[in-house]
Design a protein around this nucleic acid. Sequence first.
RNA 1: GCCGGAAUGGCGGAAUGGCAGACGCACUAGACUCAAAAUCUGGCGCCCGUGAGGGCGUGUGGGUUCAAGUCCCACUUCCGGUACCA
Length: 863
Amino acid sequence: MTEARFTYNPGAIEPKWQAYWAEHKTFKAIDCDYSRQKLYVLDMFPYPSGAGLHVGHPEGYTASDIWCRYKRMRGYNVLHTMGWDAFGLPAEQYAIKTGTHPAVTTAKNIATFKRQLEAFGFSFDWDREINTTDPKYYKWTQWIFSKLYEQGLAYESEEPVNWCPDLGTVLANEEVINGRSEVGNFPVIRKPIRQWVLRITKYAEKLLDGIDGLNWPEGTKEMQRNWIGKSTGAEVDFTVAGTDTKITVYTTRPDTLFGATYMVLAPEHPLVEKITAPECREAVEKYVAETRTKSDLARTEDNKDKTGVFIGAYAINPVNGTKIPIWISDYVLISYGTGAIMAVPAHDTRDFEFATKFNIPIICILKPTEEACKAEGVALEDVLAGRACWTGDGVLFQSGNDEVQLDGLCVADAKKTIIDWMHKKGIGTPTVNFKLRDWLFSRQRYWGEPFPLVHMEDGTVQLVPESELPVVLPEMEDYKPTKDGEPPLARAKEWLKYTDPVTGKKGLRETNTMPQWAGSCWYYLRYIDPHNDKAAWDPEKEKYWMPVDLYVGGAEHAVLHLLYSRFWHHVLYDLGLVSTPEPWKRLVHQGMILGISYKDQRGVLVPNDQVEARGEEYFSKETGEKLTMLPAKMSKSLKNVVNPDDIIKRYGADSFRLYEMFMGPLAEVKPWNTEGVEGVNRFLNRLWRSLVDVNTGNLSADVTDDPLSEEMERLLHQTIKKVGEDVESLSYNTAISQLMIFLNEMYRQPKRNRKAMETFVLLISPMAPHIAEELWQKLGHAETLAYEPWPTYDESKLKAQNVEILVQVLGKPKARIQVPVDLDKDALCKVALENADVQAAIAGKTIVKSIAVPGRLVNFVVK
RNA sequence: GCCGGAAUGGCGGAAUGGCAGACGCACUAGACUCAAAAUCUGGCGCCCGUGAGGGCGUGUGGGUUCAAGUCCCACUUCCGGUACCA
């Protein structure tokens, strides 16, 4: 027996083809090739962490790669690239610990990521690789910042940060656990410090309007809308009783003004100090002080139990002259609206909770219908008596004065009426508010883009001129903040000094750096023209490639990255620097891939290295307790992370790619199961054996030009159709099923038709490109198949002459009959009635109705 | 709480309102083999039945329809996001 020496060996053929593609620049995107339709397919670029790639990364990258390869075969000029979002905290923390420069760590991590990604055979145009930490790249990040600054969209402000006095440093939210520092477990407080802020709120309306035209998941669009949070209402002026001080409140429910029973100011509201009564001063000051030291987290933890203090002053309700007490409470935020509200406990749940706790009157002025109450599960009498809160629609009562009457109106009409009246009287104005807040854009870190800004000795701030960009990060010995809490760059004494080349004025450079978002806000524009050192991008190339036709990335970026980046793009559009108002036409999220994990009786997850398998059951090594298996997020601590390198080594990249696409719908959350990789690996082995003589390595003698049987030809055309349609809609899982069905049938045939197998190789090539190229070569082709035309099908060959029809009587299957495929409804019923089993089933009954669905079934309704 | 998504065999999943469970995994029987692996052929929702066959079945309860996993109403559970936005 001779050993088969030419079995499917991905370890040999995959590097071979990767080298071929690299050498021939097979996937080079051609700028401004107007002879072909362009297609820009973008992946969210990774942060190159020290841990390397995990199985979640290649899911989205494979999905977009298949799309690109497919579209190239359809004749498109495809731009598909990769790069590194490489600024960030871990490299800096590593530098503080070890003294290794973040750039060194970053370069090492990028090398690992690149090696891992190349092993997948993604069809990136690697000549366009970018790195956000490269001064040649961040020169242009700084340049865009300059544009924003020139537009008045960047300003300095005192903004609160997580400040750890013991560490003498600012912490990111993820470095703060339960109000204490992750490192050292020291207390963390909120402290205002000077920061740069971007005026994204100026674009709130545009960002909101732009959402409608996007081909994005509806859920993601909805989340962006909610985040922007547009609300319409009115600002209303209340007078502080006995003074002429005015307090302006913002309300979306001016219709309920007659039900206001108290007012609340944010503890930080500037009027608090001015109007607090002397006898309340002590309690008020104590409450204000407590609020100030509370971190956001502490504030949210208490949010179920309302707190507050009466400040001893009263306000006059401008619609009815009622005197209502003024309180302060941290449920009113200084940053939203006017930092002051009128409270209508009968018709707002938060006000209701507060009023109930502090025994403030609750006055109902809105009567819902009985049905509405029933639907919500509350009693109408409770609503009317102020024992329950009603926030829905209803009919107003007890709401009017000598000049304006709301009684009998519904909420919408009452709003309109009262706003008109207040506007005329000069006590209120219709107002639009957004939840969206300006974007805190500076970090007190080293490893980020320096701002191109200088604080001059005369107190002014000026931009570094474009000719002096990039402002390069200085080399440093120590990456820690200074003793007095200044950012690390304050240590670079020489670097700080700046002299204006024209005026000779002196100043010091800005020591804050930009957040990681900055580089990722515009990277898709740099891919278009990555080596341009005269401009961020060439306008003609931008016009050719933009917008991005397909953007693939995780749903965790549904709000922040996607919104920040849209904001920059809108600004660039308004400046005439880009040609489209929105950057991404179509967006798809890949679902998370979960790992296998185990939980104990209490539901606590146990790390995989502490699990012992006994047959089909699992037990804890430590306690001996029985465990149950379940899918859970992959994490280092659970030791359930799957390393792609191991999978590629065992099965090859094609099997990996195929498996991740076969697992289920792209957008769903799916559990990883390595046994599933064996399944698709078997399929590829079968494909190999169906074409290759494993003893010689040559094309198998079973591959001939003998014509296909009619059934096989039909299946071939059905497969071309199904695979094409499924790939088009990114339904790769069902496309792969269809390929399996075809190959299973073909494999049973004694001879395999060469043309049909060539077609099959082309169909599978976007998903399993290495084996496809190798087989394509064995089939006698000298060139890559990457630009072969995508196979077409013949509509007339999709259907058989005869088709099986199910005949039901009263919905129960009674017979199956063979009929010509084009039989119409009447003929179908007639044929069905001739069947003996059908006749037996309807014997003695009358047919009331006959339903015939050509190609599928007939159903007789009898009595 | 609110917003978004989901629920189908032992598992991942498939199904323009038209025969639920395609395809794959696991399991299982057989072939090949001295044996094993690999490969090939078959079986495989659950219950009753030796069998032919029958009954039940897409989270739960209702409804629409000749026909519902799919449409409508009410709920349950799970996952993700978010945190008092007046």
